[in-house]
């Protein structure tokens, strides 16, 4: 009996050790990034398409002030309120002291330089598809941005979600580096897939999530309740979004729907970004959405 108890305790300890091991945060292998030439101009396009400023600029920042990634915007969710941190190149308040490898670990794996998991409010579940060269160019562009000394604020997240290790379990369950749409047999569809599934991270809002907050890939872009609790984020699947491809592209450029209503909410920021990208990118997104199974 006593021995059984001992074994049981040993088993539990082993399980805990195993859980501790698998929920650990390991940085990315940065060797594929080493020695690459970087192009900050290309990085700017990645920055715009990825919408970094849309969440990390100060609340209500306009125009050029959006390039100051001071943080402070609040994002409500079922798990608590996340507050975007300062990711400007400030050495103390921001991420100015990071290496390229640490930046890549954050963006593609959701792992901080201190070896902590980031919450998936940061859409690394989409950014994990980002090309290595694009990460290099993005980091080069980052160095041209203004530094800001505003301190980051702690997230307002309660138990048990305030245990960062639990994010390790979440990552095991949900991080998936395969494309949702497996076949993209033209360059346009491939570009559209890269924009929708990776950089612009459309699925993060437009795909419904399960009880633990993982994207339900079986209902990819199928629409979802707004995490703020007010209203619905619409489905983008062809049966629901019946707009012509040119209409989708025009919406992403101007914010006008085919009946000339206009976008609101967070989509406004998305459209501001898409309006700055080449027309071919907006057409590629439209082509990808129309080709969804």
């Amino acid at each position: 009996m006593r021995r059984g108890l001992g074994l049981g305790a040993l088993g539990l300890a082993a399980l805990a050790a195993a859980a501790f091991f698998v929920t650990g945060a390991t940085p990315i292998d940065d060797s594929p990034l080493a020695g690459r030439a970087s192009d900050p101009a290309k990085g700017e396009t990645i920055f715009i398409a990825s919408g970094c400023a849309s969440c990390h600029a100060a609340p209500d920042a306009k125009d050029d002030a959006k390039l100051i990634l001071a943080g402070g915007q609040r994002f409500e969710s079922d798990f608590g309120t996340f507050i975007a941190p300062n990711i400007s190149p400030h050495p103390d308040a921001g991420i100015g002291s990071w290496t390229l490898g640490e930046f890549a670990s954050a963006v593609k794996k959701g792992v901080s330089p201190e070896g902590q998991h980031y919450y998936p409010a940061f859409p690394y579940g989409s950014y994990l598809h980002m090309d290595d060269q694009d990460v290099v160019d993005l980091w080069a562009y980052w160095q041209t941005l203004p530094a800001d000394a505003t301190p980051s604020q702690p997230h307002e997240v309660g138990f048990p979600f305030n245990i960062r290790r639990s994010v390790g379990v979440w990552k095991l369950l949900y991080l998936d580096d395969t494309w949702v749409v497996q076949t993209a047999d033209t360059p346009e569809l491939e570009r559209g897939r890269y924009l929708v599934e990776a950089l612009a991270h459309c699925g993060e809002c437009h795909t419904p999530r399960d009880a633990l907050g993982g994207m339900n890939r079986a209902n990819w872009l199928g629409g979802a309740p707004n995490p703020t609790g007010r209203g619905t984020i619409p489905s983008l699947r062809p049966a629901d979004l019946t707009w012509e491809p040119t209409e989708i592209a025009y919406y992403l450029e101007t914010g006008f729907t085919p009946d000339f209503d206009s976008a609101g909410g967070h989509m406004v920021a998305v459209i501001e970004n898409f309006a700055k990208l080449p027309a071919s990118d907006r057409q590629a997104v439209a082509a990808y959405l129309k080709a969804l199974p």
Partner: peptide, 13 residues
């Protein structure tokens, strides 16, 4: 249009 809707109009249900 967007600038105003972004701040003052609730999302559609």
């Amino acid at each position: 249009c967007k600038a105003c809707h972004d701040t003052y109009r609730a999302p559609a249900n």
